[in-house]
Computed example of a mutant assay.
Amino acid sequence: MTICEILPATDAQDPALALLRAGQVIAIPTETVYGLAGDATNGVAVARIFEAKGRPRFNPLIAHVADMSMAESIGIFDPLSRKLAEAFWPGPLTLVVALRPDAGIHPLATAGLSTIALRMPRGFGAGLIAALGRPLAAPSANSSGKISATSAEAVRADLGEKIPLVVDAGSTPVGLESTILKVEDGGLRLLRPGGVPAEEIERVAGRPVDRHRRGNVESPGMLASHYAPGAAVRLCAGEVGPGEALLAFGPIRAKDADKALAILNLSDGGDLREAATNLFSYLKALDASGAKVIAVEPIPMQGLGEAINDRLSRAAAPRDMPLARS
């Protein structure tokens, strides 16, 4: 059995680098959620990511970079993708661009696609990638399809028997995975809503974002059933049924909320950023309450609400649905 160590970020860079250089995978903090990181150029490391997560092989991984120089050595940036990178990097935006033939990214990380999903993180991950000198493949540090981890302890509870190290930088500030965007025929297509609201992207780009989803998997986070607790999830709940837990939002409660097995409020004041930060940890806590169903109060669709509703709809989807469709 693997002995999983948790180290504070202030002490973890050298041990983390040693493990990554040896082809191991570790969990690291980012501003979005904790990531399960391995050298994206090392096939053994990438295979270990899939193994630890139990992840479908056709689902591609994001390659995390330290700077634009590293990004441009991997992907080919059209003018609009470059403009968005300059506006939002480092930060919670992933851009899908054409893959350079000589990029060195292992084919397992791209699922055989001719494109690559790239992101430049803030914080510990940025310094680690710069010190390593190679990009890190780093999907969310949780078993595939389950709730993403926003704390080091949540990672160890899920993956502690499969990885040797979790780097602890406290709770992640954004709490949602990155927005994934692709420039296509001069337009913008949203592949996954996330930490950067689509409205902010539209303001910078000066054009609308196409939210229509195709049936094929083009990037991470496009499976219909994803981010799921063990309990069933019931959306837009106007009342609470017997034995249900309640994921609340804002100051007004669903009918019979006082009868809920457990209640957690994403944001008492209806703040979507606070709600995003709390989403995964609150789902996990309600799942641990023993309820077989988690009822979720309605959440607005604007701003980060779009990403929150996306994650909740995937958590509520039938567990055997292979693809996200519009």
Rank of each mutant, 00 (worst) to 15 (best):
I201N: 04
K259F: 14
R156A: 06
S178G: 01
A52P: 05
V25H: 05
A260W: 14
A52H: 14
A315Q: 12
L36G: 07
A138W: 15
A245W: 13
F58N: 09
L190W: 15
S313H: 09
G230D: 00
L36H: 11
G221T: 10
G215D: 07
F124T: 09
G303R: 09
K162N: 02
D158H: 13
H226T: 03
P139Y: 15
E184L: 12
L93I: 05
V293C: 03
G35S: 12
S114Y: 15
I28D: 02
P173W: 04
G160A: 12
L113I: 03
E5P: 01
E31K: 14
L108Y: 10
S81P: 00
A9I: 12
R253D: 05
V196W: 12
A137D: 07
H106I: 14
G241D: 09
P197R: 11
P298R: 08
A237V: 08
D287G: 03
H106N: 14
A141F: 13
V97D: 04
G243E: 06
V46N: 00
A237F: 11
A18W: 06
M70A: 12
K284Y: 09
V217W: 11
R156T: 00
I49M: 12
L286T: 11
G215P: 10
E306M: 07
G38L: 05
R57S: 14
